[in-house]
């Protein structure tokens, strides 16, 4: 239970994303996440934690994307590298998260396109990159291999490992020295179990980010919020199997009823509010990276984080 002690004993481990030229990569910036030894915000008094990063999510096949984003953004979405450029230069994101939605097509086998889009997005933006591979066990191995290879040296964050399928993403991450997203369905035990499984096949703790699965506001966020708090608190109390930085993406935000069926006049505002409230609360609960899809949400979050984290810059401690 809660002890009024500034020192809980545990500390969140570090994960480094992106590699600059000095680090043998091509990114314009790299981030070192983690390091907290106290609850979010309070940490500023006793020890320094990193400011949460805002990742902007894009995809390589927008037919699987929310029409709210595609209609707001326009043609840009069909040019994935340009979209990534916009995420950095127009919206001001800290990271780009690329979903390889093209792999969802039935009978997908255009593997060279995976290499290409990953390389193109890496050229389109200097930001560190998160790549979400496929969801289909039959092609997982090839896909992860491709994006792992395409991003060699760039210290990508590769997603997503789950308890039922973690070997192929782990293999690619280990082969090319990338970090990986370990996702479990809103449960502290399952989150810990997956981390143990990954450890046992040789994945180092400093290459894992926990994705506790973030339900969108009103649709599971009530559980995700507490699971994030629990994970963080357990880690601070010394559970090293949970002491990794967390990534939160309330990715269904734009498809929930309240947003989808909103009056078109205010639909974008509602979409932004829905993303913003969940993302900020996730950061309060301990997330180091929050992901959003609406361009307008990015600057709002950046502003809030800058204010709350006392003007620190991303990656600064």
């Amino acid at each position: 239970m809660a002890e009024n002690s500034p020192d809980l004993g545990g500390k969140i481990g570090y994960v480094v994303l992106g590699a600059t030229k000095a680090e043998d990569g091509t990114r314009s910036v790299s981030y070192r996440l983690g390091g907290e030894s106290d609850l979010p915000f309070i940490g500023m008094k006793t020890s320094l934690g990193s400011i949460p990063l805002v990742a902007f999510e894009i995809c390589d096949d927008p037919s699987y994307w929310s029409p709210i984003v595609t209609s707001y953004t326009g043609d840009l979405v069909s040019d994935t590298p340009e979209w990534a450029t916009a995420a950095e230069q127009q919206y001001g994101a800290d990271l780009v998260r690329l979903y390889l939605t093209s792999t969802k097509r039935r009978g997908f086998d255009d593997f060279p396109s995976i290499t290409k889009v990953t390389e193109d997005v890496l050229s389109g933006t200097g930001l560190p990159l998160v790549v979400e591979g496929s969801n289909e066990p039959a092609i997982d191995s090839e896909i992860f291999q491709r994006c792992g290879e395409a991003g060699q040296g760039e210290r990508l964050l590769l997603g997503t490992a789950e308890a039922g399928r973690y070997r192929s993403v782990a293999a690619a991450a280990m082969a090319y020295n990338h970090s990986m997203v370990a996702q479990s369905p809103i449960d502290i035990n399952l989150a810990k179990q997956l981390n143990i499984l990954l450890r046992e096949i040789g994945v180092k703790a400093d290459h894992i980010m926990i994705d506790p699965y973030t339900g969108s506001l009103g649709y599971g966020f009530e559980y995700s919020y507490s699971v994030m708090e629990r994970i963080r608190y357990a880690a601070l109390k010394g559970d090293t199997d949970l002491a990794m930085p967390m990534i939160a993406s309330a990715m269904d935000s734009l498809s929930v009823k309240e947003v989808r069926e909103a009056d078109p006049v205010i639909r974008d505002d509602i979409a932004v509010a829905w993303e913003f409230y969940a993302a900020l609360s996730s950061a309060v609960a301990g997330a180091s990276i929050v992901c959003v899809r609406h361009p307008k949400t990015v600057p709002l979050l950046k502003l809030a984080f800058r204010e709350l984290w006392a003007g620190k810059k991303p990656g600064e401690f």
Binding site: D187, N189, L190, K192, Q193, I196, D241
Partner: peptide
């Protein structure tokens, strides 16, 4: 339920 999920691991999530 929490204990059950924790126990659904060999031997237990809390090693």
């Amino acid at each position: 339920m929490d204990e059950y999920t924790g126990s659904s691991f060999l031997p237990h999530t809390d090693l």
